[in-house]
Every structure is written in C-alpha cells, then in structure tokens.
Amino acid sequence: MTTTQPRTLTAPHVSHPAVHIRRGEFWVSAGAADKRWMSYVRWEAPGIETGKPAVVLVHGGGGQSLDWTLTPDGRPGWASVLVERGYPVYLPDRPGHGRSPYRPDVHGDRLPAASPAQMQTLFAPTEPDPRRRAHTQWPWSRNAGTPEFDALTASAQPMLHDLPTGHRLDSEMLSELLSQIGPSIVITHSAGAAAGWLSADQHPELVVAVVAIEPLGPPLRDLGDRGQLEFGLTAIPMNFVPKLDQALDEDNPPKLPGLSGVPVAIVTTDASGRYDADLATIRFLHRAGVKADHIYLPDHGLPGHGHGVIYERNSSDVLTIVQSWIEAATTSRPPDEGTTQ
C-alpha cells in the first residue's frame, strides 16, 4: 500500500499583507427608457482618505474588471496595488461584459469568447512567432491545461460585434461613472481605450489624465465587418475642429481641443508587436494638438513584456513607472510639454 504525502497549502489571504480598505459596488445606467442598460462597478479605497484622485481602470476587449484585480497566478493586480498606494479605484465592467448584463436589443450581436489558441496568440506567443524570444516576462506555461493559462482563458468574454455600438456604450458608461465620482485618472487597456479618448474629449473637466496601455490602433484601423476606427482612434465621432471629414489640408489637421488639455500617455511593451501601431497613435494625437507622451518600457529598464503586461512578472514595477508619470504630469507638467521617449 502506498501513502500519499499531504499537500502543504497556503491560502491566498495568509500570504497577502494586511491592508485596511473600504469597498463597495453599484450600477451606472444610460439609454432611452425602453432600452435602459446597466453596467456594474466595483470600487475599493484606502481605509482613510489620502487626498489622491480616484483611478478608473477600464479593461480591454473581451475582458472584464477582474483583469485588474489579480494576476492569473493569484498575485495582487493593479487595482489592489493602487489602493495600497493610497488611490481610490473604480472597476467598471464595460457594457455587455463581465457582470454588466447583456441585452441583444441594446448591445447587438456578440462574437464568441476567445479560444485558448486565440488567447495564446495575443498574450503568450510560442515559437516560431518572432515575439516569443523577446517575451521573457511571461512567468507561466503558454499552453492550455495549466492553471494560470486556463485562468486567463476563463476570464475571456464575448465582445460586441458592432464596434460603433461598443464605443458609444463604453463612452456613455464611463461618462456617467465620472459624473458620479468626479475628476479621475483613467487607465485603459487595449480595446478599452476608446472609452478614455471619448470621455476625455467630451468631459475634460472630469478626466485628470489618460493612460492607454497598448491601445486599440493604429488610427483608422479596419476591423472588417466589426467596423473601422473611422474617426482616427474611435469608431464614433470625436469633437474635432474642424470636423474630421472636412479637414482636407494635410498641413492643417483638425484638432481635439477637449482632449488637448488632458495629460495623455501611451504605454508600449517590446514583445507584443504593437510598437509601430502605438507610434502611429501618438503621431495622430500630436497632429490633433494633444500632448501625448510615450512610455516605452525598455527605456525604463523593463524589457520583455507582452500585451498582458498588466499582470505579467513585473506588473507592479510597470505600475510604478505609470504612477510616476501620473504624479509628474498632474503636478508640474509645463504647459507646452509633449514628448515621446
């Protein structure tokens, strides 16, 4: 008879430092009476007021707010770390995603949730993909059937099929949330970027700064039957002056006066394959009069990250770089500064 040695287990709460926090949840809603829709929002804040602005974390396409709360292997995500550093954090589930109810008459058709193979292509490329060799900060297996990769895949949500509908609903959701909580820092990931651009464009008084982690792009990108980034960064109109479709003079491109007053940063990794797309986004913003900075992580001593940078090995160190930029940009930014690094 063989005996099995008992496993030594450590519950997650045992190894996590004690932090005094407040938390809650609520709903935001918008839309006409017969097509009113709701989005779920969770919030966490330090146990005492710190005077720091709130941070709204907007997840990417096919994601949910849980993307920000923990990593696939159970480490604290950006939301938890920000609270520990004194920031109140708001975590919306984008319309039709996560715990935000999906209504076909409001949201339209949805695409199937990403398969393990699609998640691998986006977040954990394997050989012979040329990104694999540079992608050194992915700390887990790259194959389905392992706990961390399966946890990542389990979080994948169906995306809305119609891009303009998704951008309109995202914008309405974030604008309503900001109207309730006041001026906030908005950090977006991937396809969640449109919500940040649109809200800052429409309500610059409510947006302290925008940080876009590898945003959907490049400008004018065609996504086939889903739609196109027809207005540069978004699939629905922004407040260009003059209107974008009237600006035929390449030497005098239309401007975004609302967004131009908001500090903006684009964060790019070196192993995702998105460098050129992010540079095109920055050029587009500069031409529109927006003082956008470029945070290229290898320039800050953090190479090897991919598109899932917000939960990879050095995720807290990446957040420290972002936090430093936010603090500098919102306290001592010269009026005419706008650089790429």
Rank of each mutant, 00 (worst) to 15 (best):
A33D: 15
I213K: 03
R274N: 13
P254I: 02
D105R: 08
G24Y: 12
T320N: 15
D34T: 15
L302R: 04
P128K: 12
D170F: 07
R226I: 01
T4M: 12
W325A: 04
T331Q: 08
A292L: 02
S175N: 12
G192M: 02
G273K: 01
L122Y: 02
P116W: 02
P335H: 11
D170V: 00
A288V: 03
G98L: 08
I326M: 09
Q341D: 14
H294V: 11
E25G: 13
G304V: 06
W325K: 11
D225I: 12
E84G: 13
D317V: 00
D299Y: 10
H305W: 07
E44T: 11
M119H: 08
E250Y: 12
G273S: 06
P335D: 13
Q341P: 09
K291E: 05
I266F: 11
S171D: 07
F240M: 06
Y102E: 02
A154M: 11
P12S: 04
E205S: 13
M173D: 01
P112W: 05
L111D: 14
V58Q: 09
H20G: 00
L206C: 04
K243M: 07
L163W: 08
P303I: 01
T136E: 11
H189M: 01
S39Q: 07
W37R: 05
L177T: 11
E148Q: 15
L229A: 01
G51S: 09
A194H: 06
W78D: 05
K35V: 03
D162E: 12
H161C: 03
T320F: 07
T146N: 10
N239Q: 13
A209Q: 11
T4Y: 10
R142P: 11
A235W: 04
E214V: 01
V267Q: 07
P183R: 14
L178V: 13
G306F: 01
R42K: 15
T153A: 15
N143C: 00
S332M: 12
A54N: 08
V241W: 00
H161E: 14
T339E: 14
P95M: 08
M119A: 15
T136S: 15
G304Y: 03
K35R: 15
M159T: 11
P242R: 06
H161S: 10
V186H: 10
A200W: 09
V241G: 00
L229T: 01
S39E: 09
L91C: 08
L178F: 12
H20I: 12
V241F: 07
F149P: 06
A288M: 00
A79Q: 00
Q137G: 03
P6T: 10
A151N: 15
S100K: 09
Y311W: 15
A134K: 13
A235R: 09
P237G: 00
L256R: 07
S260F: 05
V318L: 13
G62R: 01
G192D: 01
D162Y: 09
P95G: 09
H189D: 03
P125F: 05
R22V: 04
L297E: 07
F149K: 05
V186N: 08
L233Q: 13
L177P: 12
